[in-house]
Every structure is written in structure tokens, then in C-alpha cells.
Amino acid sequence: MQRNGPVALIFHSLVVAFMLAPMVVVCLVAFTPENTLTMPWNSLSLRWFEAVFEHADFMASFWNSVRLALLSATISTFLAVPAALAITRYEFRGRDALNALFLSPLIIPHLVLGVAFLRLFSLMGATGSFAWLVATHAIVVSPYTLRLILASLTSMDRNAENAARTLGAGEWTVFCRITMPLLLPGISGGWLLAFINSFDELTMSIFVTSPSTVTLPVRMYMYASESIDPMMAAVSALMIAVATVTMIVLDRMFGLDRLLVGKG
């Protein structure tokens, strides 16, 4: 690998600083004892975190988002495993179309998806249902699960499965004992990415949530459009913490660069 020159080093540092600075500022502001968005120069306080935990709407939205992310990540994983197996292992008509269909939510703007789903749900009379919200999120996060599972499938040694077959294992045993364990890094990596993406999805959710299914990002958006106080900073800090912890777990378990830069 080539060493960076001093100019490149300064440039990279500036880019990183530019990306990190807002998050650092938000996290710091969250500890302010004041009533306005100010830096806590003189003293630190947890009052805005307390405020979040005592704010019933925020807590309801938080749990709503957690449930939504858990369910949609899991559902999309269950869909992506067979889809990835079909795409990598079988020649059939419409294979490329299936692949493209699964990846399309990455390309279509969430705003468009949101409007489309809103229209669809009002036609169906399903507006405001939590189940349909889960369905929309499962669709939006499925590119992540599919990508990661595809990556681990293509890098997998098919002869391991063949070896199991010659040793007397039937197809179902091969799948449970060999294929699934070897896919596990891809599956759990995809699941976690899907979870994070569902958890902070805002654009589409604005259209498809109802007062009873407001997610945390939507709640924050609504709150922030009325008033800006340090509670928003506290919520943001908490979300950053959740995302960071998941990323660290992901990295510890599988190595982030392997998952995201990945082969295939």
C-alpha cells in the first residue's frame, strides 16, 4: 500500500472532521443544562436524557421503531435466503429480473416509494396498519440482506456441500448442517444492516405511518418542526449510540470491511 503524502493526509483529516463534527456537536449539546441548543461549557447535565425517557410519545415511538426494525429485518432475511440461493444456483427465466427487483428499492427514491405506498394503502383501506408498515420496511431493507447473503454464497466453496453429500447427507441435512452455517456471517450481517436502515428510515415512513404507528425518526421530525430544544440532541445522541453499538457488534463478529466491501 502506498503511503499518503502530507497534503493527502490533511485533506483526509478535514473530510473526516467535516463528517464527524456535527455528530460530536450533537452529542455534546445533549448534555447541556440550558434550555437552548448550547454547548455545555460550564457544567454537564443529564436532564434532557431524562426528558426523553419521561416523554411518553418518544418512548412509544422508540419501541415502535425497534419492533418495526426487528420484524422487517427478519422478514427480509427470510425472503432473501431462498432468493439468493435461487439467483446463484439455478438458471431460470427471469433470474436477472428477480435480482433487479430485489435491488430496486436502493434505486427508487424513498419519497416516491412513500407516495406510492400511501396511495396503495388508501386504495386498499389499509392506511395506518402496523403490519403494512412492516411490509414496506421489509421491502426497503431487502437489498441489504440480499447483497450480503449473495456475497457469502458466491464466495462459498460448493464442494463442502458435495463432500457432505458423498458422506451420506441428504439435501435437507446438507442445507442445515453445511449451507446455513457457512451463510451465517452473510445472514447476520445483512440482518444487522437491515435493522439499522429500518430503524432510521424517515422519508418513506412519513407517508406510511399513522398516529398510532409513528416511528422514532418521524416523531423527531414532527417534534423538530415545532420546536428545537436540547431534547432533540439527546434523542440524536441515543440513536447514534444505538447505531454505533450495532456497528461494533457487526465488526467484532464478522469484520465490517469484509461484509461491506465484500467479495462478489
Binding site: D157, N159, A164, R165, T166, L167, G168, A169
Partner: peptide, 27 residues
Amino acid sequence: PPQRELGVVFQSYALFPHMTVAENVSF
């Protein structure tokens, strides 16, 4: 293949990476 009951050694070994040596052999 499972019904043929042949012993096969693959060119690429094809060991089960998630199993120990003993588990591989015992499979």
C-alpha cells in the same frame, strides 16, 4: 451421491470450515 457410499477426497479438500478436525471426520 448419498446412496453411493463412496469415499471422496476433493482436489480442494472441501473440509467443513465451521467444524473442527474431529467433527469433520466424524460427520
